[in-house]
Amino acid sequence: MSENVVLRVEGLCFAYPECGVLEQWSAALPAGLTLVRGDESSGKTTLLRLLAGQLQPQAGQIRLQGLSPGDAPKAYAQKVFWADPRSGDLDALTARGWLGSLPARYPLWDAAALAAHTEGFTLHEHLDKPFYALSTGSKRKVLMAGALASGAPLTLIDEPVGGLDKPSAAYLGRALAQVAGQPGRVVVVAHYESLPGVPWGTVVELNG
């Protein structure tokens, strides 16, 4: 098991001024699919932001293939895919423009996978729209197409089915199953319940 661990977290602590979130949280995540499950306000998105290096923990260590976000932020960032579906940072970009910028950032980018996900999520008609003009579901589909094609050793996906139609949700399940066997890659999905048919290798419960 230890040889297969991609992401190791030890003693992670984080609190907002108004409430605590994580207290001495530890995990050793192997390659494959990890579900972070919890109710609203249980800390799922906060955990993803910590793993992405977007938030700094008050204590504890995060190591992705031996790299820490604090010690080697640029090298760590190249190994992590994170795009917050609630953020407006991409609003001025078109979906095509943003997707086109990703190969330069991710050394393991898979163009064939992007083509498959564009087809599977029926994104062709949305590629030339700016993000601000996309529906909630279409925006999530573009972000997930980029996430899955990135090849990033740590791929973080938050609340994946928000706004998705049934065919797209079904495709997402198949797409996740396909990446489950990629060596050296852990895909962490935060959601309040399990997604049917997805072969989760690890399930982490957050209680808030």
Rank of each mutant, 00 (worst) to 15 (best):
V179R: 12
W200Y: 09
G184R: 12
T34V: 12
G60H: 02
G146Q: 12
F131E: 11
R8A: 13
I62L: 11
G184Q: 14
E193G: 13
G11C: 04
A133H: 15
A190H: 08
G38C: 00
H124S: 15
G53A: 03
A190C: 07
H126S: 11
H126G: 02
L123I: 04
Q24R: 14
Q24N: 15
A95F: 04
G120L: 14
P199N: 00
G60T: 08
T122N: 10
S135Y: 02
L143Y: 07
Q65A: 10
I62N: 03
H124V: 13
L47S: 07
Q78A: 14
T122P: 09
D128S: 10
S101G: 14
L50W: 01
T202A: 07
Q24I: 01
H117Y: 12
Y171F: 11
N207D: 01
P167F: 05
V204L: 15
Y192D: 09
D84T: 04
A175S: 09
F121E: 08
K141M: 14
A180N: 01
L108P: 06
V179W: 04
R8F: 01
D84G: 04
V80Q: 10
M144P: 13
L67C: 05
L148Q: 14
S135W: 00
G120I: 14
L50P: 05
D158M: 00
L164W: 08
T155H: 13
G32D: 11
V186K: 11
Q65E: 08
A104N: 01
F131N: 09
D165V: 09
F14V: 00
D158Q: 04
S2G: 12
A116N: 00
E119K: 07
P103M: 10
P69K: 01
L172N: 02
A113L: 15
F14K: 05
A152D: 09
T136R: 13
W25S: 00
V188Q: 03
D71Q: 14
A190Q: 08
